[in-house]
Simulated assay, not measured.
Amino acid sequence: MSTPKTTMAGPVNLTLPEGDPNPVAGCRQCLGVAVTRANARSVGDYSKATDTNVVLRTHLREDHGAE
């Protein structure tokens, strides 16, 4: 019997994560999400900070036409 292969064939190439989306100046909703993100980070809640990035990206795409 042959021994099953337990390693991958080659290296895994990962990219750096995207940076934080920037709020649009003058938009109250953008500002609110950015403040929530800053507050989450200040108490070490990085899961919530990541969630707010998703919310902000969705808002930017839907309300500001960002891609």
Score class of each variant (00 low, 15 high):
M1G: 09
S2R: 06
S2W: 10
T3M: 08
T3C: 05
T3D: 11
T3Y: 10
K5A: 12
T7G: 15
M8L: 15
M8C: 15
A9E: 11
A9D: 13
G10T: 07
G10Y: 07
P11Y: 13
V12E: 14
N13P: 04
L14F: 12
T15G: 11
P17Y: 02
E18N: 09
P23V: 00
A25S: 14
A25G: 09
G26F: 05
C27G: 05
Q29P: 05
Q29L: 08
C30G: 04
C30R: 00
L31W: 07
G32N: 06
V33P: 00
V33Y: 11
V33Q: 08
V33G: 03
V33K: 05
A34S: 08
V35D: 10
R37E: 08
R37T: 10
A38E: 11
N39D: 14
A40C: 01
A40M: 10
A40E: 10
R41E: 13
R41C: 00
S42C: 02
S42A: 13
V43C: 01
V43T: 14
D45H: 04
Y46L: 09
Y46D: 15
Y46V: 09
Y46R: 04
S47M: 07
K48R: 12
A49K: 01
T50F: 08
T50A: 14
D51T: 06
T52V: 12
T52A: 09
T52N: 06
N53W: 02
N53Y: 01
N53K: 06
V54Y: 13
V54A: 15
V55F: 08
L56Q: 03
L56M: 14
L60R: 04
L60S: 04
L60T: 01
R61L: 06
E62I: 06
E62D: 15
D63R: 09
D63E: 15
D63I: 06
H64Q: 00
H64N: 00
G65R: 00
G65H: 01
A66N: 10
E67A: 10
E67H: 07
